[in-house]
Amino acid sequence: METTQLSRNTNTSKIDCIRTVTFTINGQSTQLQLPPWVSLLDALRHHLHLTGTKKGCDHGQCGACTVMCDGKRILSCLTLAVSKDQSSITTIEGIADNGELHPLQKAFIEYDAFQCGYCTPGQICSAVGMMQEGKAQNRAEVQELMSGNLCRCGANSQIIDAIMEVYIPETHE
């Protein structure tokens, strides 16, 4: 006979743990009451209905949940929402400027850099972060530094084409 059960503490009740989190999301100050085990990704999707940020694996293996946090691209699935108290988060819903698409968004459409569209928000947020980091100096380096974002439709070339259309590498050092 085989029994499956993962022995675990079941005593910690939600009420004891609820915390107030205040962050700025896409420029708007937002407050949530959350237990600490809620990921930033689930806070965005379930609590704020900002479903543009996608869940593709929930384990840091695909990049679909990429958001900008205090100017850096991070994976919202491996981030506890409570740990981002007082942070500033930009999601795909905040990338366009008052309805005017970001140049990357326009380039993604123009280059057909997506098919199903599910990895797209993560690709775009990641590319925004990659451009701000400014480390990539050529196409091969852009490919490498964008490799944390998987695309199952196989739009890889067009994604890099779209980014190269917008990204002007700075010469560092």
Binding site: L50, G52, I92, L101, Q105, P121, I124
Partner: peptide, 8 residues
Amino acid sequence: GALKVTGA
């Protein structure tokens, strides 16, 4: 396209 690139 616009809906997909904006998360809408």
